[in-house]
């Protein structure tokens, strides 16, 4: 259930098999959707550029889950200065636990120090760099929500309008 304060803007659904058939889909989808979501923001072009960057990171992460079955669902909401992305994609339970651990790690202090460490460490999981990067560079609040079996949902709140000013 979405937070009542958040207004739904857009709902995108795509077969995972179609989505993962081409890496360019991450770039194309993030740009296309970001332009639509950002059109009525104060500076639509820069808002769209920033939203596309954050969204692309999430789409690339779901692309790397390599699931072929099921659906990718991406729902956009807005409340005041915050854009919320709810991204659901198929994910085996083992991988689910891995993501849950990463998201738990974001709740502890020292996000910035961890991020700096992860940037320099080529053995660190890319997913960790992505989630820490969203938290540190975009001031994102990230939650992991229980979803259908063998699927998970990231809920990412992005205060982009504030970052732009």
């Amino acid at each position: 259930m979405a937070d009542a304060a958040f207004e739904q803007l857009l709902n995108l659904e795509m077969e995972m098999a179609t989505f993962t058939s081409d890496w360019l889909h991450c770039d194309q989808l993030s740009n296309y959707v970001a332009q639509m979501v950002s059109h009525d923001r104060r500076d639509p072009l820069r808002h769209s550029n920033l939203l596309s960057s954050a969204l692309n990171e999430l789409l690339e992460m779901s692309f790397r889950s390599e699931a072929q079955e099921g659906e990718l669902a991406c729902v956009f909401y807005r409340h005041e200065q915050i854009e919320r992305i709810e991204l659901s994609f198929p994910c085996p339970s083992q991988q689910h636990r891995f993501y849950a651990e990463l998201v738990r790690g974001l709740k502890h202090g020292g996000k910035l120090a961890n991020y700096v460490k992860v940037i320099a460490d080529e053995t660190a999981p890319l997913e960790q760099a992505i989630l820490l990067g969203l938290a540190v560079n975009y001031d994102a609040e990230i939650e992991l929500r229980a979803s259908a079996a063998e699927a998970l949902t990231f809920v990412v709140d992005l205060p982009l309008e504030r970052l732009l000013t």
Binding site: D27, N49, S52, S53, N56, E57, E60, I119, A120, E122, L126, A129, I130, G133
Partner: peptide, 17 residues
């Protein structure tokens, strides 16, 4: 550069560091 993902950023950062 209009966009850069974490893969590119990490690789670039490590070369510079």
């Amino acid at each position: 550069v209009t966009h850069m993902n974490s893969t590119a950023f990490g690789a670039l950062a490590r070369v510079l560091v």
